[in-house]
Design a protein around this nucleic acid. Structure first.
Length: 648
RNA sequence: GCUGCUGUAGCUCAGAGGUAGAGCACUCCCUUGGUAAGGGAGAGGUCGAGAGUUCAAUUCUCUCCAGCAGCACCA
């Protein structure tokens, strides 16, 4: 038998017979390592303890102390054990797939009856039973025919379909967890007893389409979370509880920012506090846009379907538009209109007024564009996904050779703004051509190449998001995450060769001939609604002082200080600070508590001592102690903090 | 839109086949209190909407509406 050489992390190497498994390698080192080992990395690949190694390689053996490998294996094995538990309890349930995700795993099942929360408890108990049996995990390679026949015999149509979708004729790997088996790429743990029976929890059941296709069967998905030990599980569950406190829907109520109600689903009633945040942010954006060389415009809300047909939106998005029909009773002719679902076609209309010269390009046109989209009911989510919203929209009409510089400029424009708003880092995704699209492949090639090159030139290597582009062009998405880690697209930058063509936009070039401009669609915040939702969650309601709707509450400790409180409020207001008096007949403790819950950043308490000395007792949100300071000093300092970052 | 769950006072929630309760918030009174809830009294609800079963429905059934989680969608 031929020999191979395995190199260990410490640089030493040893010879083994070809076909040696990591389990045998571990055993050759020590008994305890053989027991503790969970998997190996062999020449960079995560390797099952049972898989043979046939050539020279580097090898490192993993134990539960190696977080990345341990968590992957634990969660993956939990998924299998859960599926086995489900089939042991309900043998008629059909299995599908069960991947590892952040913090845990899920597994999709086909079962007539829905799983209930009580079922989850039963499944957990069965899982613990399986884990405690410490049964070996074993693997075998099968050919396709055998696997297909096996699953057909076991009445597992989803597995048959999965196998048939695997290209080529490669042999398939099967895994056994005790007597239960599943088609699986692996790797897995050595035996079920390596799973921490006290470090997992089944979280929820939800529907999910088979293969992510809404035309196919709706399966039942069970989500679980799993960790190396009980403490980490506890920590995770605690983190979820804390995250729930940052939910913008909850804080929106506590801070009296906005509300929503049945009569206007997916639309927001902004209260004075929330509207203060909104307008403060809008003022900031307006200043940024001016500096960025944009001209601001405004366009109609109700627009005849003819324009949407011309732009191509009618065909693709008709179902998702609010339709406004005007009948003969109201007008001489019947017309069908749509509430503007986006601003681009309207901006082209402005562009198309008068002849444009190449000297006019790039033309950067911005609008705080109010849009309405009839979003599917299930998509609505607080103020993050709504049916009525305002984009900080903009379209840059430019020449092809300006795409790169305009993209670079936008990325730096956006980065500066995100930084000002407290987001030092964000992820960038590049989405290319979707299946249903307008424009020829040549045009798409051109647009994708240009956008990607420009992004890389700006020093960003985006994550690829295949097939997720807009119907008229590829896009960059600037993604932020909410309190519990859900991703939300905020900023976007899209290259579009299609709309200018459809809506016949052009300019006169240096050569005196007509040319087609390129349109760059871009939004920085995305929509004020979503961005404010993210802002609230990421700051846990403690907005930066300049954005805080109520910046200072001046509270009297005794009623003899009421007049002084009013003087303090006046002094702060004169400096542009949003200050209000609280001279209610309540104890200072009560006032402090109430305004802390309301996330007011600064409370200035005034008793007779402060009245006599011309001072205030300042307490900042979250701090335990207060400081007595001269009023002038406090007013000057707070005025500085109240200045937006771009004006400071 | 799909699967599942939920809908009772402004908020958080309890409740039962015989037309409802708590805490906080609100109003009034007492209290002038030094940094996260002082005390008392009062007011407040077509129990999401509609239909059905029943002597009787807020409670059971169905339909619709809205919300929550996930999926699908996201110009």
């Amino acid at each position: 038998m031929s020999q191979i050489s395995l190199t260990f992390p410490d640089g030493n190497s040893r010879d083994y017979d070809a076909g040696v498994t990591p389990a045998e390698v571990a055993a050759s080192i020590s008994n305890s390592l053989a027991k503790k080992a969970i998997s190996a990395t062999v020449s960079g690949n995560h390797w099952d303890m049972q898989w043979p190694i046939n050539e020279d390689a580097s090898i490192s053996l993993h134990t539960m102390k190696d977080d990345a490998q341990a968590l992957e294996l634990i969660r993956h094995d939990f998924a299998h054990v859960m599926a086995r538990a489900v089939q042991e309890i309900w043998p008629d349930v059909k299995v599908t797939i069960g991947p590892v995700i952040d913090n845990g795993w899920y597994y999709d099942f086909d079962r007539e009856e829905p799983f209930t929360p009580e079922d989850l408890g039963q499944i957990e108990a069965k899982m613990k039973e399986i884990i405690n049996k410490r049964e070996p995990v074993t693997t075998e390679i099968w050919d396709r025919d055998r696997a297909v026949k096996f699953y057909e015999a076991n009445n597992e149509p989803y597995k048959v379909e999965l196998i048939e979708a695997i290209p080529g004729d490669e042999p398939l790997r099967m895994y056994w967890h005790g007597h239960w088996q599943d088609l699986c790429r692996g790797p897995h743990l050595q035996h079920t007893g390596q799973l921490p029976a006290d470090a997992f929890k089944l979280m929820s059941v939800a529907g999910a389409y088979w293969r992510g296709d809404s035309d196919r069967a709706m399966l039942q998905r069970i989500y679980g979370v799993g960790f190396q030990n009980k403490e980490q599980l506890k920590k995770h569950l605690h983190m979820l509880e804390e995250a729930a406190k940052r939910d913008h829907r909850k804080l929106g109520r506590e801070m009296d920012l906005f509300h929503m109600q049945e009569e206007a689903p997916g639309q927001i009633f902004w209260h004075p506090n929330g509207w203060t945040v909104y307008t403060e942010l809008q003022d900031y954006m307006r200043r940024q846009q001016k500096r960025g060389g944009y001209v601001e415009v405004n366009t109609p809300q109700v627009v005849d379907r003819k324009l949407w047909e011309a732009s191509g939106h009618w065909e693709k998005y008709q179902e998702h538009m609010f339709i406004v029909e005007v009948d003969e009773e109201h007008a001489r002719e019947k017309s069908v209109n749509a509430l503007k679902p986006m601003n681009c076609p309207c901006h082209v209309q402005i562009y198309n007024q008068g002849l444009k010269s190449y000297r006019d390009l790039p033309l950067r046109m911005a609008e705080f564009g109010s849009c309405n989209r009839y979003e599917p009911s299930g998509a609505l989510h607080g103020i993050m996904r709504v049916r009525g919203f305002t984009q900080d929209d903009g379209h840059i009409f430019c020449r092809e050779d300006q795409i790169e510089s305009e993209t670079a400029e936008f990325i730096s424009f956006l980065s500066k703004i995100y930084k000002d708003l407290g987001f030092e880092s964000f992820s960038v995704k590049f989405s290319d051509r979707p299946e249903m699209r307008a424009g020829s492949d040549e045009v798409w090639d051109k647009a994708e190449t240009a956008l990607l090159a420009a992004t890389r030139a700006a020093g960003i290597e985006p994550e690829l998001n295949p097939g997720e582009g807009a119907f008229y062009g590829p896009k960059l998405e600037f993604v932020l995450t909410d309190a519990i880690g859900r991703d939300w697209q905020c900023g976007t930058h899209q290259v579009d060769f299609v709309l200018p063509e459809r809506l016949d936009a052009n300019y006169i070039g240096e050569d005196g001939a007509k040319h087609r401009p390129v349109m760059l669609h871009r939004a920085t915040l995305g929509s004020f609604e979503r961005f404010i939702g993210i802002l609230i969650e990421s700051h846990a309601g403690k907005l930066p002082f300049w954005l805080a709707p109520r910046q200072v509450v001046v509270a009297s400790i005794v009623s003899d200080a009421d007049d002084y409180v009013q003087q303090v409020v006046d002094a702060l207001t004169a400096k542009g600070i949003r200050a209000e008096a609280d001279i209610r007949n309540e104890k200072i403790n009560y006032k402090v508590r109430e305004h802390s819950v309301g996330k007011v950043p600064v409370i200035l308490a005034c008793g007779m001592k402060e009245v006599e000395d011309g001072t205030v007792s300042m307490r900042r949100l979250g701090e335990k102690h207060s400081k007595v300071l001269p009023l002038d000093e406090v007013a000057a300092a707070l005025a500085g903090e109240a200045t937006p970052p771009d004006l400071a």
